[in-house]
Amino acid sequence: MDSLLDQFFNLDVMRQSLPLLLNGLWMTLQLCCAVILLGLVGGLVVALGNMSPRRWVRWPAVVYTDLFRALPPLVLLIFIYSGLPFAGINVSPFTAVVIAFLLNNSSYYAEVYRAGLISVPKGQAEAAKATGLSKAQALIHVILPQAIRNVLPDLLSNTVEVVKLTSLASVISLSELLYSANMARSVTYNASPLVLAALIYLILLWPLVRLVSHFQRRLAA
């Protein structure tokens, strides 16, 4: 029992590895910011493309969402980081992660937005048009606020997935939280840094998960 505690909950090891893990956490947070913001914006653009009445706009958007939801994000990541150099395109690990996850996330966010946009009754857009608002004004002031409110739990829960997904970056040696913890494990020859990393993810994500449940219950009510 003692040896088990020592292997997984060794406070000394945890204390020693904390600075390294906090560095990793900082990188994870930076990644999250970039990937979530780009994903939210990119997803909206793709969703609007998806719903365009013009075929030459709609079709590429449909292909995009289908393709990048079907491709495993890890395959995408390794291809961009390790495959593209064969074409003479070299990207930093950070850039590779941002590009790979942007492609992946924006297609998921796009589907969520689309569900939201469809949920707003047609009469809302008609009322906006009839009062002289332009298409963009109608979208920004009338349609989007309602669409986003209707799918807020899904947007949030997708965001939780995005945060978890960033741990994949460890595969291409980007020193985010998981990579740092694994480094600390191999140096200290102790699993406690991994447990600590798991705890940090938990602290980061548990409030978000709670919030999703809260919204879902409120929308159901």
């Binding site: 009754p121 809302q124 008609e126 009322a127 048009k129 009839a130 009062t131 002289g132 309602q146």
Partner: peptide
């Protein structure tokens, strides 16, 4: 067209007020 729609007010069967 947007500008000309300002001169034509419309009232719908379903009201279509903005709920938010």
């Amino acid at each position: 067209l947007d500008r000309m729609r300002l001169q034509v007010g419309m009232v719908f069967q379903g009201f279509h007020l903005y709920p938010h």
